[in-house]
Design a protein around this nucleic acid. Structure first.
Length: 283
DNA sequence: AGCTTCGCCTGCTTGC
DNA sequence: TGCAAGCAGGCGAAGC
């Protein structure tokens, strides 16, 4: 489940070899992975890559303007997607679930592999990409006052609000659980109840994201770096996937429940369930 | 409009 | 052992 740290890792890795390379041929064999309105990936042939960037959890490849063709490629890894970089000319075995290939003029290749096919690919102009990537700022871009303003008018659980990419982008299930554990807030707490703690929440999210980026991401099962190796942050998770284990702070048993349709991990002693109060339900 | 639920998709795990 | 059900979840669409 690639979230901000995993996508940032892939982007940093691709930033080394991709800029300056020219696309010879681009093929997508699973057309259902196109996001609606995408141009055909084959139109990228002949274009040279200028830059690789991240928007929330999406990877944005910018190509040099080329005969009026679309010059942006967006790849979203969904849950199980990965990009594999190979710059040797050696014969490569075709992995299962290979859906897209971008071959460069020097024989190198970028491959998109995605068993569960929740990811997507979008090819378009800068304007159409902007349109397709409508999302809020990521945790390093957003200001705590902006976050507080968003939370203060929402009654939904803080967990679902932090997962909502229109409010803040880049956070997914793992890092939301980790951040809420750090600030000792129960995942079911309504946003409006914790808007005064927005700065704290934001700082916790940034801290865990920074550490995860330093560790090159979290590999639970599918996530891989562009060279096929795993991230290292999974061993540093404090609550995610640790249900049944002990809280490192208080020793209570870490629990798992479903919030916002997601498996949600928390310490029942450190993260007190909010008490029902009339002020939340009343207008 | 905000909030919740559903469905997409595959592979591993669990239960009978 | 074999098969089916359950589960994982990012995110857009549908439903309330």
């Amino acid at each position: 489940m690639p979230e901000l740290p995993e996508v940032e890792t892939v982007v940093r890795e691709l930033r080394v070899p991709l800029p300056g390379r020219t696309v010879a041929r681009a093929i997508l064999t699973a057309p259902d992975l196109y996001r609606r309105g995408s141009a055909d990936i084959s139109l990228l042939a002949g274009a040279r890559i200028d830059a690789v960037d991240r928007r929330g959890k999406a990877i944005v490849v910018s190509l040099h303007p080329h005969r009026g063709r679309p010059n942006r490629l967006v790849v979203h890894l969904g849950m199980t997607g990965r990009l594999e970089w190979n710059d040797t000319r050696a014969k490569r075995a075709k992995p299962r679930h290979l859906h897209a290939r971008i071959l460069f003029t020097d024989g190198s290749e970028l491959r998109y592999v995605d068993p569960r096919r929740f990811g997507y690919i979008f090819v378009g102009t800068p304007a159409s990409v902007e349109e397709s990537l409508r999302m809020g700022p990521d945790p390093f871009e957003i200001d705590s006052k902006m976050l507080a303003a968003q939370l203060s008018k929402r009654s939904a659980s803080i967990k679902s609000l932090l997962l909502n990419q229109h409010i803040v982008s880049g956070l997914g299930n793992i890092y939301v659980d980790e951040a809420l554990y750090r600030v000792r807030i129960h995942p079911l707490t309504p946003g409006m109840r914790v808007s005064v703690r927005a700065a704290e929440i934001l700082e916790a999210a940034r801290a865990v994201l920074r550490r995860a980026i330093d560790a090159r991401g979290t590999t639970l099962r599918d996530y891989r770096r562009t060279d096929g190796t795993t991230g290292e942050f999974q061993v540093k998770l404090l609550v995610y996937g640790r249900d049944g284990g002990r809280c490192g702070r208080c020793g209570a048993e870490i629990r798992k429940m479903v919030v916002a349709q997601r498996g949600t991990h928390y310490c029942p002693r450190c993260q007190k369930r909010p008490r029902i109060s009339a002020s939340v339900s009343r207008k």
